[in-house]
């Protein structure tokens, strides 16, 4: 998975964008936490092998949460969440689900680290990588998804059985038997930029909102 710091940063960006009037330190922390939550399946992989980037990176988790949230807040006569926390709670809950899906799972999906988004229906890892280029000589060049056998195909590094996602919690041992744990913060320039932007956007939102009153 991409470093959790980057996932949290994207979660913060989503929180700054969508919390609106419910934006405060507590709600932002909750949303950031929701973004990081899927990465906990790395800890679960210590008990059951091969569930990293699968168990909690399944699209069914946020889908189930969204259905439950929709049922409670829209279909029931008196919503439990709204009664307990008001509109604030409803807004924060929706944004947290969005952060879980878009930041927590999405970032892995669009990365060579890959995510098994259909787990447990399918234990295959998916990875949407490629390029989309307009060229005056070749027209539109697109390699993210490809048509194969009537299906849209995306790159897959393997299944939970064959593809091992390494994490600092569950590292593989090197050729000489030494285990090196590596906790990654940022892997590249753009990831550092995303972290910087998130760190700047949160206080900027507070300053700007405070100044307009």
């Amino acid at each position: 998975m991409p470093p959790t710091l980057v996932t949290v940063a994207v979660g913060v960006l989503i929180g700054v964008a969508l919390l609106g009037p419910a934006f405060d330190r507590r709600s932002l922390a909750l949303v950031a936490l929701a973004a990081a939550l899927p990465n906990l399946d790395a800890a679960a992989s210590l008990l059951a092998s091969g569930v990293t980037n699968a168990l909690l990176h399944s699209a069914f988790v946020p889908a189930a949460a969204a259905v439950a949230l929709y049922y409670d807040t829209e279909r029931r006569e008196s919503s439990w969440l709204r009664q307990r926390y008001g509109w604030y709670g409803v807004r924060v809950a929706w944004v947290a689900v969005a952060a879980y899906a878009v930041a927590g799972i999405g970032l892995d999906l669009f990365n060579i680290d890959s995510a098994a988004v259909l787990y447990p229906l399918s234990d295959r890892y998916y990875s949407i990588t490629g390029k989309l280029v307009l060229s005056t000589q070749e027209g539109i060049v697109q390699t993210y998804v490809e048509w194969g056998d009537g299906w849209l195909e995306v790159t897959s590094p393997g299944t939970t059985e064959t593809h091992r996602v390494e994490t600092w919690l569950n590292p593989s041992s090197g050729a000489d038997g030494d285990v090196v744990r590596r906790l990654r913060f940022v892997d590249s320039g753009w990831q550092l930029v995303v972290v910087i932007i998130a760190a700047a956007a949160a206080p900027a939102k507070r300053l700007l909102d405070g100044g307009s009153d």
Binding site: L109, N111, G130, K131, L132, V133, L134, S135, Y144, W190
Partner: peptide, 12 residues
């Protein structure tokens, strides 16, 4: 060549 997105993260 006008790249719209290169690599997964840009599309993301």
């Amino acid at each position: 060549r006008a790249p719209i997105a290169v690599q997964g993260w840009q599309l993301y």
